[in-house]
Amino acid sequence: MADRTTADVTLSRDELAAYFEHLGEEFREGEVGDGEEVRVSVGNKTVALNPPETVDLSVDVVERSPMFRGTRETIEIEVTWKPRS
């Protein structure tokens, strides 16, 4: 069984940068061996995660041409790992 928490929001560029900065600080502070979790805000919920020292990162950028209902750009960022014990 998989638990999924999803939120779709509209942010300003400054708000997005602050979200990523906070997420980066969570990963930096939750170092392996200190017992801290990485806490991720998703909508009105906070999810506690337990990443190991290394994680897998996938970045996908899509640029759609105007031929397909107007120009649109997308960045998908996925970070995966097997939780620490």
Rank of each mutant, 00 (worst) to 15 (best):
P83G: 07
P66M: 03
V59I: 14
G33C: 07
W81A: 08
S58F: 04
M1Q: 08
G70M: 10
G24K: 05
E29M: 04
M67R: 15
E63S: 08
E26D: 03
V42D: 13
A18N: 07
E36F: 08
T80L: 01
E25K: 05
E21D: 13
F68E: 13
K45T: 09
E73W: 02
G43L: 09
T6C: 01
E76Y: 00
D3Y: 11
T46G: 03
E26V: 03
P83Y: 04
R84H: 01
G33T: 06
R4D: 06
R13D: 08
S41Y: 00
H22Y: 09
E21M: 04
N50P: 02
D56M: 03
E63W: 10
F27P: 07
G33I: 08
S12G: 15
V9W: 01
D3L: 13
V62F: 01
R72W: 02
H22V: 01
K45M: 03
L49W: 13
E15C: 01
V79N: 01
L16F: 15
L23A: 05
S58P: 00
V38N: 04
K45C: 00
T71H: 12
P66T: 03
K82V: 14
E37Q: 09
E76V: 12
V47N: 05
T74I: 12
V61P: 00
P51R: 07
T6W: 09
V79M: 14
E21Y: 03
L23Y: 02
R84A: 09
P51K: 10
G43E: 07
M67I: 03
V47P: 09
S65R: 12
W81Y: 13
G35A: 05
G30P: 03
R39W: 06
G43W: 10
I75F: 13
D60E: 11
G35S: 12
V9I: 10
G24A: 15
N44V: 05
A48N: 07
R39A: 14
D60F: 03
A18S: 10
K45S: 11
T74W: 00
G35Q: 05
I77D: 03
T74H: 04
D8T: 12
V79R: 02
M67K: 10
R13A: 15
V79C: 01
F20C: 12
K82A: 07
M67V: 04
G24C: 06
D14R: 12
G35F: 07
G70I: 11
D56H: 08
S65K: 13
N44Q: 11
F20R: 07
E25S: 13
V62A: 14
G43Q: 10
